[in-house]
Simulated assay, not measured.
Amino acid sequence: MDRETLDSIRQSVVEAGLVLARSSMTIGTYGNISQRVDADHIAITPSGRDYEQLTPTDIVVTDMEGTIAESSSAPVNQDFGHKPVADDSVNTKEDRSSVTVPLRPSSELPLHLEIYKSFPEAQAIVHTHSVYASALAAAHKDLPPVIEDLTQITGGAVRCTEYTMAGTKELGRNAVQAMEGGRSAALLANHGAVCWGRTMKEALATAQILEKAAQIYCIAHSFGTPFPLNEKTAEALHDFYLNHYSKRQRGEE
């Protein structure tokens, strides 16, 4: 792995985590983010670490089978339940907090790996617990293509998976199935949402627009019946996004 590229990718994941936390797309240590490093490795947020406290070296690197290729260590707070001993030189706060443990990849690593394996164009993945997307997921409802911007990115309805326990390969397989046809987002039943992008910026935008569209859909239901865009229009919008708009965003057109 190229060290300069890896450092840049780790920084990108950290910055995406701050966006997620500060836009209320998740709370605390929930949700997770990853980005491809190369054909054989990804960089993913560690398990149980607050986004506001992440540093680039905290981001764990694994291969495509989930084996850790690179990980740092983090201090463990041992104050809880600590029993004093006679020798204060051993019982200092500094000594107690100096114990470290290796950082583990997010428990949703299998979800990320299944998506990367199924969609070679996916370069980054964002998994959120945002409120309105999670509300639809709790109701086991698909999100129809009711708003143009989301339809442009995802290509149509964002489908909801069957319920599967978090942290399992089956959850990843169900997400991939919901994304059939090149969709870049899925709702995870009783859980949240997962989105991928050709860049980290696109993955984040997809997650943010998905949450906005879910909110609009729920509001529209409160005073009437939303009217989804038809399949022909959805295909045209997605084609325009793939072949023109996204290229303009990347400075390729």
Rank of each mutant, 00 (worst) to 15 (best):
L188G: 11
D38E: 15
Q152C: 11
K169M: 12
D239T: 15
E162V: 05
H82D: 10
E114F: 14
D40F: 08
L113E: 13
H244R: 04
T67N: 10
P46F: 10
T55G: 00
L103I: 12
G28V: 06
H140W: 03
Q208E: 09
E94I: 08
L111D: 14
S71F: 06
T151Q: 00
Q35E: 08
M179T: 08
H221C: 12
V131R: 03
V60K: 00
E114A: 09
T26G: 04
P110M: 11
T67V: 07
N190L: 12
A137D: 15
D142M: 03
L242V: 12
S97K: 12
E202T: 03
D149G: 00
A193L: 05
F80R: 13
D149R: 02
V19M: 06
D58W: 11
S246I: 00
E211A: 07
K201G: 09
R10L: 02
K83S: 11
I219P: 02
Q78F: 02
K201A: 00
P56T: 04
E231S: 08
L18P: 02
S73T: 09
S12V: 10
D149P: 00
S222P: 07
V126I: 03
P226S: 03
E170Q: 10
D7A: 07
G197K: 03
V194R: 00
N32E: 11
T100S: 09
H41T: 09
Q11W: 03
A220D: 13
Q152H: 01
I59C: 01
V60P: 04
T206N: 09
A186V: 08
Q53F: 14
P84E: 11
E211K: 05
A193V: 07
V126A: 03
K169L: 11
L20I: 12
M179D: 13
D142S: 01
D87H: 06
G17S: 01
I27P: 01
L111W: 11
A207D: 01
H238W: 10
R96W: 06
K169T: 09
V14D: 01
E231Y: 04
P46S: 08
R173I: 12
N243M: 09
L18I: 09
A175Y: 14
A193G: 02
T168N: 08
A214E: 11
V13P: 03
I44S: 07
A39T: 13
A185I: 05
Y116E: 15
S97I: 06
H127G: 00
A74R: 13
T164N: 15
L20T: 08
E65T: 11
E180A: 15
A234S: 07
S118E: 10
I68K: 02
V146W: 12
K232L: 05
T199W: 05
P84G: 15
L187I: 00
H244Q: 08
A213T: 13
L18R: 02
Y132Q: 01
K83C: 12
S246R: 00
H191Q: 06
H41F: 08
A205E: 05
L237S: 05
A139Y: 01
T62N: 01
R104F: 13
S34F: 10
A214G: 06
A186I: 02
I219G: 13
S12K: 12
R104V: 15
I125N: 15
P120Y: 13
H244P: 00
E121C: 06
Q78S: 08
T128W: 05
R198W: 03
D50M: 09
P144R: 10
D239G: 10
R104Q: 10
I9Q: 05
Q78I: 03
V101N: 02
K169N: 13
K232T: 04
T206L: 08
P105D: 15
M25I: 09
T154Q: 04
